[in-house]
Amino acid sequence: MTVAADHPITLRRRRWLDAALTFVRRQPLGTVGLVVVIVAALAGLSAEWIAPYNPTSNDFAVMTEPPSAAHWLGTDQFGRDLLSRIIYGARTALIIGFVSAFVGGFAGLVLGVGSAYFGGLIDLALQRVMDILMAFPLIIMALAVVAIFGTGVQNVIIAITVPLIPRCARVVRASALSIREVPYIDAARTCGFGHVRIILRHMVPNVVAPFLIMLTAFVGQAILAEASLSYLGLGVQEPVPAWGLMLQGGAEEYASTAPWIAIFPGLAIALTVFGFSLFGDALRDAIDPKLRER
């Protein structure tokens, strides 16, 4: 106890470290995932400094060149350095992934918790709206949204985000419902606390775990959804460096003659989504006591 009083910060740090070490030990796959995510995030954040070339400037002298000392991952159709485009592409991917996941997730959180807390007619009505959005074919809605607004990163994000909302709201509502009737919520109500306070202080913390796990899954799904839209020609557009776009062009035209143009962006997508999924799974296992190792 005296140690704690004397060095509270050290101990907190040590506790945090302990938890991290436990996570690494118990979840080796999750740790791999986390590392991948961190690498992608660092690449995206520091693209200006680490990318060897300008990702958008064409160089007709080195079109479709295989990997070499000058271009580690080779060059694409326009002679652009693939490594640089992949590094910048990490930024595009993470912007799309995180913005879609967070906006979709938070909208879902608000709707899910609200729906569960207020119940009754509001719940019924909100659930019907969520039903409609759930049942509506996602890719078709995305196609329509892009057809209405045109391509562009923010429109692609809108197209991807809308379908995420009901899925999040569903899960959050179910978790929130299970604790709505718990005595302490009733107690809080009888104490005359306001809705906002009850929701924020008591209900939200209880749905945070499933919510976080879902967020990590959403990031990966959003990155994949962008790739699917790209395949239909309606994702992010040139010259913006984006993995889905690079993979689409590469896979359609160069899969066998200049495979590096397709392979590296494909790997970038697969690895990143893989990382987020592994990390999400491990997080779920770590948070959910039922799934912890015997």
């Binding site: 400037s57 326009f78 040139e238």
Partner: peptide, 17 residues
């Protein structure tokens, strides 16, 4: 778009069906 960038013009591409 790349040619235009050489005179300092920034163009983005918007694709429509």
């Amino acid at each position: 778009i790349d040619e235009w960038s050489k005179i300092g013009v920034k163009a983005t591409q918007k694709v429509l069906p």
